[in-house]
């Protein structure tokens, strides 16, 4: 079997964060891949919801986004925002919000709205869509993103979706959901300290070096004395990812 890709380690690490029987709201891309992997291995009773109003889909073709009916295929429910985002996310019954991001800062705040280049010029991108609603109200939030210094800044260029804003706890922020839980990157898995709410290293992917993680993080990352390696995907997980879940390598590249 060929060398394991960083994206495959990310998908497997994401899958392991999900427990059987949980309700997860996912975005397209690696979050969806991780969710399917979890469902096909240790969490067959996982419920996957899409904000557009789709539940427990079993797609057989790769979709370009949530608006692509390819990802609505063989769902158990079609509804809309009011149901998924209102009566599930806002109601507080969603265990995990699984999100991508442009930028994530040390307190798990997410930016999906705009980027600033070196000259300070602003370029708008997608905005919140369901991101703010999910980050505000899901019991825990898992984020997945490439590990680059500019994507992990001290403070996000725009705070679209709140984590532990200013290091404060969620109750003080007026938020119901539990907030950021994990950031899964192509080098490591990050978590958040229970007291300071600041990002801390949870595990280091095989082949990634600690100094590279520190070098590529734009804020002071807490490094515990012992940092375990992120488990590699098993042979069966790799087979599922490569042969069944993303055989064309659209997301696992």
């Amino acid at each position: 079997m060929p060398e394991v890709l960083a994206s495959e380690i990310m998908a497997a690490a994401g899958a392991r964060e999900l427990r059987d029987g949980e309700v997860v709201v996912v975005g397209l891309g690696l979050p969806q891949v991780a969710c399917v992997l979890a469902k096909r291995t240790h969490a067959p009773r996982l419920d996957a919801l899409l904000e557009i109003g789709v539940m427990n889909m079993s797609p057989i073709d790769t979709a370009v986004g949530l608006a692509d009916p390819r990802i609505w295929y063989r769902a158990t429910c079609w509804s809309g925002f009011l149901d998924v985002m209102g009566m599930n996310v806002h109601r507080g019954v969603v265990d995990v919000g699984f999100l991508g991001a442009l930028e994530i800062d040390r307190f798990g705040n997410i930016n999906t709205t705009l980027v600033k280049d070196d000259s300070g010029r602003v370029r708008y991108v997608n905005g919140s869509a369901g991101g703010n609603d999910i980050a505000s109200n899901a019991k825990r939030v898992i984020m997945i993103m490439r590990h680059e210094k500019r994507k992990l800044p001290e403070a996000v260029a725009y705070l679209t979706s709140p984590g532990f804003v200013g290091g404060r706890n969620r109750q003080e922020l007026g938020l119901r959901g539990g907030g950021p839980h994990r950031v899964i990157t192509d080098m490591a898995v990050l978590g958040f300290d229970a007291d300071t709410h600041s990002a801390t290293l949870v595990s280091l992917h095989p082949l990634a070096r600690l100094e590279d993680v520190v070098e590529n993080t734009g804020f002071p990352l807490h490094i515990p004395k012992e940092v375990p390696p992120t488990p590699l995907p098993s042979q069966e997980e790799l087979r599922l990812l490569r042969e069944e879940i993303d055989p064309k390598g659209v997301f696992l590249r």
């Binding site: 806002h90 505000s136 725009y158 679209t160 709140p162 922020l173 938020l175």
Partner: peptide, 10 residues
């Protein structure tokens, strides 16, 4: 009333 957008730049 809603519980979203609180403590955000939005």
């Amino acid at each position: 009333p809603v519980k979203s957008l609180l403590s955000s730049e939005i």
